[in-house]
Design a protein around this nucleic acid. Structure first.
Lengths: 330, 330
DNA sequence: CTGTTAGCGCTTTCAG
DNA sequence: CTGAAAGCGCTAACAG
């Protein structure tokens, strides 16, 4: 591998000059810049990122902290989209990413985790799906040792930003669309997610707003993002409700299945917009979240935090869709 | 962050001595070793991996090269298990992993890709699900620039190993179990995967062996791992066959659905053993592949290759299972 | 057994 | 505008 020294020699300039053009610093004449670039080209030179990191003490490394739920395989698609979005954007921003799973760090203490990450030279962390119970993440934030971006959790400070879509409004809109799209829907069962997830509260707020606006009779139950629970809830509420609004597609499938078994029709709507729904064999309204885009935005945000000390909330858009479920996967 | 220098000072020894105990080299007396360890403890010191890598020119970094099929979300679970297995094992072996997707590198030339990876100080690559069409991977192997482990592709040389389960025998056994477990199954439709995947040929070989042994009438069709195609094939062969052996769970679901629609019963078996099957609402035999374990083994193998120049084929075990599909996800 | 020393490849002052 | 030189934190000969 050619090194910066080779490039310098080839171009007939000093190493520091090469470094300057490499990093796009000003104060290099066009002519030398050209010479350097020619040399880089000729030698097929790629800077050694490790050496650069050591020298500059800027590692630009961010850890992606993912939660792998063993029980529900259907969220894997979401996680993979998160990963894909983050990794692609990180490549563009020339950030280095490492993927970690909660299970790897859950049993570490704060000190151990901190030095583990520091040793890996990570400076930033993107945490997906943190919830109220994740005490250690809270400590990590409080320690201020890292720049952190929380996806789907509402907190920000100097070193911490949050990135998510407007859950409240999305839930409001998809429910509204579903309810107004069908006649005489006043009694609404809202099957919420799990109590500890931050998104749950936001979405409930959206439903309450809608209930007030349309004078609905709103009943709220927690389905814990479980198809089974949603199914059971639907069974027990089927004869008392007009419409079933669910906080996830998976729960919406559970609700639909219950209604099909009972052989009654009620509108159902979901949330997430993942192709998992292909297996349900029906159509329904849902909110398509751009997990890839959210994750890419999180990387941008962590990049920003790496340079500025100024966390913030980033709220992204979403899309209301009517999913056309193929019954069969092609 | 404390550096090796601080540790040396604290322990009253030279930095090279600290380095030696850090790396477990011999030739350090117990007493100084203790002093050094005490200093490390006291200062809560963690070695800087970047500096170590630069200095030793051993980066121990391996890239995981994954293929994300946009069309079929159901393989996401497999990919995530691959990732999880690799990342966990890599942590234990103190290897550094980066996750890459084929889509990120597909449009690069060999030189570009090589220098991209070299710049990232990648020394080893684990490629998942490479198939015959992946020309550039073939070139990468030929270039000899990296230590490569292929998962589910049968090739090895000095710098390349392969890791997979015994596809032929697994297919043989699961089909045998299914066929012998039901009466008078002689006409067998084998719905294979896609022609370009290496596993396809292996599995077909297993079926041929079985057909010979049990004097079966074996018909082979390619379902391309598509639920839809498997379903169509099943429709058209339903009245001519006794049993439907499929090269993936997803195709097995397609076959089962077709049979259910036709309201006839024939035994069906699948391959993979992923919970996706939960959605089918039936039971069937399948081969449970331990994707996590395969991936962990691949990391071990790349670690071995990093030290030895001696690729090989690693064949792992599998399990025949009868999946109990919950119809509902809890 | 222990310490001294020369780098790894790059960034970054600071003179010229 | 350009170049010389001092490290970043660590490893690895090589002396002692």
């Amino acid at each position: 591998m050619a090194s910066i020294k080779d490039v310098a020699r080839q171009a007939g300039v000093a190493i520091s000059t090469v470094s300057k053009v490499l990093n796009g610093y000003e104060g290099v004449s066009e002519s030398t810049k050209d010479k350097v670039n020619a040399a880089i080209e000729a030698l097929n030179y790629t800077p050694n990122a490790v050496a650069a990191a050591l020298s500059s003490k800027q590692f630009g490394r961010v850890a992606l902290l993912l939660k792998l739920e063993e029980t529900v395989g259907c969220v894997d698609e979401i996680n993979l989209q998160y990963l894909s979005g983050a990794i692609h954007r990180a490549k563009e921003l020339k950030l280095d990413v490492v993927t970690l799973f909660f299970s790897m760090v859950a049993d570490m203490g704060l000190d151990e985790l901190t030095s583990y990450l520091k040793a890996q030279s990570v400076e930033g962390i993107i945490a997906y799906g943190m919830n109220e119970e994740d005490e250690f993440l809270r400590e990590l934030i409080a320690s201020g040792a890292f720049k952190i971006v929380l996806v789907d959790a509402p907190y920000h400070d100097r070193n911490t930003s949050s990135v998510w879509i407007d859950q409240k409004n999305a839930q409001y809109e998809i429910a509204k669309k579903t309810i107004l799209g069908n006649e005489s829907c006043t009694k609404v069962l809202y099957i919420a997610g799990d109590k500890k997830s931050f998104v749950t509260g936001e979405r409930i707020a959206g439903m309450k707003k809608l209930a007030e606006e349309l004078a609905l009779e709103l009943t709220i139950e927690y389905g814990d993002f479980s198809e089974k629970k949603a199914r059971e809830l639907t069974f027990s509420y089927a004869d008392r409700m007009d419409v079933f609004v669910c906080a996830s597609d998976l729960m919406a499938i559970g609700a639909m299945r219950a209604l099909m078994e009972l052989d009654v029709f009620h509108p159902v709507c979901g949330f997430d917009g993942i192709p998992l729904m292909s297996y349900a064999g029906k159509q329904m309204n849902t909110v398509r979240q751009d997990f890839y885009g959210v994750s890419a935005a999180a990387v941008e945000e962590v990049d920003r935090l790496l340079h500025l000390e100024e966390g913030r909330n980033v709220v992204l858009g979403y899309e209301l869709v009517r999913m056309r479920y193929q019954d069969i996967v092609e």
